[in-house]
């Protein structure tokens, strides 16, 4: 490797990262992950829940949550090929270099659940931004009481990180419950919405910190179920999504009421969003 190019300190200028490994997570790669390493050798330190702006040469930039372990070497991102940039990125192979700006945004306050139950509620691809919180809880497992991962997705084929989920459930002290909207032959697990897993309980609502990530509709129902079960709004965190261009608070795109998702979020304590959460087209 040639000497790394020195990188400007300007937060609008990306750093170079090499794709060390690119692999399909779901199907033929509609959802895929990258393991990245910095060309300049300086690791990118982040907190669970934060995101980076990923840049593909000449194509553009997209905000993508970090899906890897904050306390392990390497940077892992999980992407869904759904827009122009993420579809182009799907074609990139190991060895290619992309630009990375970040990390940006607020983090899952995992430490807040120390001495209490931790309930992680994920919907669909929303498991990816929550995975760093899972890693964090598992690394410091003795600091928490029960730890739940409640995960709902569309169908068995779409289950993200399937082997890892099985490993967590079988080997580690993590209550993993997975449910799908549509079962199928060979599926012997739960069928139904993720909110039902919340209703089944097993955690102490007054001493629980909950974190939800997924489509906005799913989070709305998840929060309602958590509240119905007795978890206060001040103990629930959600991760929001809006269009984003600069990630540092001045392009204006990610506004959500008074908030800038890029710097005030993406992780918000639910009570701070409650007044606007149900306002349409905000």
């Amino acid at each position: 490797m040639s000497a790394p190019a020195s990188q400007p300190l300007d937060p609008m200028i990306p750093r170079q990262f090499r794709i060390e490994e690119a692999f399909a997570e779901v199907g033929s790669g509609e959802v895929y992950s990258w393991r990245l390493s910095p060309l300049d050798g300086e690791p990118l330190r982040f907190a669970p829940g934060q995101f980076n702006m990923l840049y593909q040469f000449g194509i553009g930039e997209v905000p993508i949550s970090i899906s890897g372990d904050a306390e392990a070497a390497g940077l892992v991102h999980t992407l869904r090929a759904v827009g122009g940039v993420t579809k182009a990125m799907q074609k990139l192979e190991a060895g290619e270099v992309i630009g990375v700006r970040g990390p940006f945004g607020t983090a899952w306050p995992v430490a807040e659940a120390e001495g209490q139950d931790l309930v992680l509620v994920a919907g669909g691809i929303g498991l990816a931004p929550l995975r760093p919180a899972v890693y964090c809880a598992l690394r410091h497992r003795d600091r928490f009481n029960r730890v739940f991962l409640l995960y709902g997705t569309r169908q068995p084929e779409d289950i993200l990180f399937r082997e890892e989920l099985e490993h967590w459930r079988a080997q580690l002290d993590l209550d993993v419950y997975v449910t799908v909207d549509r079962g199928g032959p060979g599926w012997h697990g739960n069928v139904g919405v993720v909110t039902k897993l919340i209703a089944r309980g097993g955690f102490d609502p007054a001493n629980t910190v909950a974190m939800a990530c997924g489509p906005e509709v799913m989070m709305r129902f998840a929060v309602m179920a958590l509240q119905k079960h007795g978890v206060a709004a001040e103990r629930i965190y959600v991760s929001m999504e809006r269009n984003m261009k600069c990630a540092i608070g001045y392009c204006g795109h990610c506004q959500y009421g008074p908030h800038f998702i890029c710097k005030d979020g993406p992780v918000f304590r639910f009570d701070t969003l409650q007044p606007i959460f149900d306002v349409r087209e905000l």
Partner: peptide
Amino acid sequence: MQSLDVYGLPGGAFL
């Protein structure tokens, strides 16, 4: 909620 097929539509944080 299931009939909305929320996971079929793109959604979820940043993906």
